[in-house]
Amino acid sequence: MDWEPWLIGFLSKWTAGIAAESAGVNRVRYSPNIVLINVPCCGLISPIHVVDAFLQGADGVYIGGALPPANCHYKVGNFKAFKRFYLLKKLMKQFGIEPERIRLEWFVSPQYRKLAKTIDDFVDEIKKLGPITGGVEE
């Protein structure tokens, strides 16, 4: 099977987004199988967006926000995101969809190595889980 995962990531532009930029500046290589979208805050991303991404073919969704407690540029966006996605993961499990397909990572902006490493881990994990469609050809 020549399937390979394509993931989407939503990064808080103040923390994970800066880390992604520093990863570039420092030439830290990581898997290309993820498209990273910068948003003002991970608190903007709703469970609907994430499930929408799955329905459109995302094999996994990566969310990068600010490391608690104090690094969120908007004070508490990371907490909102955490609660929403924690619940969403619980819900996904009940539907038989692997909650591991959502990856939450929390950053302060200098942690670019962490960004690269967690993306690589995530891509590997999704490779093990297989395609979101469960291998069924559409």
Partner: peptide, 24 residues
């Protein structure tokens, strides 16, 4: 960014880096 977010971190895989840049 297709430099910091792409070419500078995916220099090991031109094919996928290009595909990613297109998606970006």
């Amino acid at each position: 960014s297709i430099r910091e977010y792409c070419s500078w971190v995916h220099f090991h895989d031109r094919k996928r880096a290009t595909e990613k840049a297109i998606r970006i």
